[in-house]
């Protein structure tokens, strides 16, 4: 298969206006990936499938990744006037990288038997309504996997034929695979709560009358 640089150049030529960036992978150079811009991702993906030299007809794996906001401390030399004389002082500055959600597609070619070409798309932020274009109409195998990303990460795929929760139930509200997900504290329901569970239950259901009588029983036993 041709080199990733060449794929990038040809994809940018085939889809006017498309911006493709190579994301290097130091540990496994063969698994470096292409970052597509959201507006032209659909066109580039279509090119990757239809191009006779690539023919990436098998979209094997589709998955989401959650990248949190990152602060990277950096030491910078700054010129400052100290006691009348100009000096070079080292200062630590914090560089801020905003977080984003990412969808990763692993593409192979079944007819030419090569691969993988890995493509990624990134949302602008981690808000609940982050949108990405759906590639289900190019590779049908993305249908359930994009639904899974929507379910667990909360990325909305525009153009998906049936975007619903798939593993969690429809009434579920949060996105469990996000890095900052905290599980709710009300799952250990007990008919007669005690100790820590009782404290949690009190917080959860403040106006519940005497918590099934369990409290009453315990106070009676004490007196």
């Amino acid at each position: 298969m041709e080199a990733l640089e060449q794929v990038k150049v040809r994809a940018e030529a085939a889809v006017p206006g498309a911006k493709v960036e190579i994301i290097p992978n130091v540990a496994v150079p063969a698994h470096s990936s292409l970052l597509l811009d959201r507006e032209h991702a659909f066109g580039v993906a279509k090119f990757l499938r239809n191009d006779p030299a690539l023919k990436l007809d098998h979209c094997s794996n589709v998955t989401g990744v959650d990248w949190l906001d990152r602060k990277v401390a950096k030491k910078v030399k700054v010129k400052k006037v100290v006691d009348g004389a100009e000096k070079e002082v080292e200062e630590t500055q914090e560089e801020f990288f905003p977080g984003y959600l990412e969808a990763v597609y692993h593409l192979f070619s079944m007819s030419l038997k090569h691969g993988p070409v890995i493509i990624r798309m990134r949302t602008p932020d981690r808000a609940a309504g982050a949108h990405l274009p759906s590639l289900t109409s190019i590779w049908r195998s993305a249908e359930f996997q994009e639904r899974e990303i929507f379910d667990l990460y909360g990325i909305k795929f525009d153009g998906h034929p049936d975007l619903r929760r798939i593993l969690m139930w429809d009434e579920f509200e949060d996105f469990p695979m996000r890095k900052d997900y905290r599980e709710p504290d009300d799952y250990e329901y007990e008919p007669t709560p005690h100790d820590e569970v009782l404290e949690k239950a009190k917080k959860r259901y403040p106006e519940r009358p005497a918590l099934d009588g369990a409290e009453k029983l315990s106070t009676e036993a004490k007196s």
């Binding site: 992978n25 130091v26 540990a27 496994v28 698994h31 094997s60 794996n61 692993h106 993988p116 890995i118």
Partner: peptide, 10 residues
Amino acid sequence: KPPVGEAYGR
């Protein structure tokens, strides 16, 4: 502890 990077094995 593997090095920083990613891999897809199948």
